[in-house]
Design a protein around this nucleic acid. Structure first.
Lengths: 107, 107
DNA sequence: AAAATTAATCAAAAAAAATTGATTAACATG
DNA sequence: CATGTTAATCAATTTTTTTTGATTAATTTT
């Protein structure tokens, strides 16, 4: 027998779950740094990002996957290269204008 | 011998560190729920919050401390009771207007 | 077609965060 | 002053996340 859970609570729970994963993605200095670099440089190849971050390829892939799974960066593959960039729409939806500035070259 | 680190990088590192702790605080479903309740009810006593969250006192204290350390909630003690509330200023600085709505009774 | 390049994935180990139950500290009440 | 209430802290355990190094898969180049 399953416990009755009101529909509204379930929707809210799902909403919280999505935000949880997005905040989790941002809750790390290294990943904030990645976000900042992607902002400055725009679409960037993993092969360029690795030396900029001073990170091994495998570690970088792990962190990029977390950002990508949370939907806050885009991914594009060309041949053997992968290019990542900020999902501006999602970031705008999530963060204050002030804070978005850290992830915007214009500021 | 210490490695030279440019001043700008250090400042940025500190900035990232602060945001890291704030996002970390928000990167948990239970804590988002706490934030939501504080938003709905305003200043709330721990003794009221515990049954609302269905949490033991010790666990709740742990999570409140994380939110408070990150500076996104206020704390006020009266006698043996502690009251917590949203730090609206800090939340506004951090989150988009849309998202603030989850933490604002007016929306 | 073989060799080289790039990035994702995997499994094991290490590190960090969360949970639990008990204790402590501060205050309030009879 | 003894008792009860509230919330913070602590230590031990469990769970989750991160790191590491190796392997794999896909594509490109020679």
């Amino acid at each position: 027998m399953q416990k009755e859970i009101p529909l509204q609570d379930m929707q809210q729970d799902n909403e919280f779950e999505r935000y949880e994963s997005q905040f989790k993605a941002l809750a790390d200095k290294k990943r904030l740094h990645i976000m900042n670099i992607l902002t400055q440089r725009g679409k960037t190849c993993v092969c360029d990002l690795a030396p900029l971050m001073g990170m091994t390829q495998s570690k970088l892939s792990y962190h990029l996957k977390i950002l990508w799974d949370a939907g806050i960066i885009h991914k594009e593959t060309k041949g053997t290269n992968s290019y990542y960039s900020i999902n501006t729409k999602e970031i705008n939806h999530l963060l204050s204008h002030e804070l978005c500035c850290i992830f915007k070259p214009s500021c």
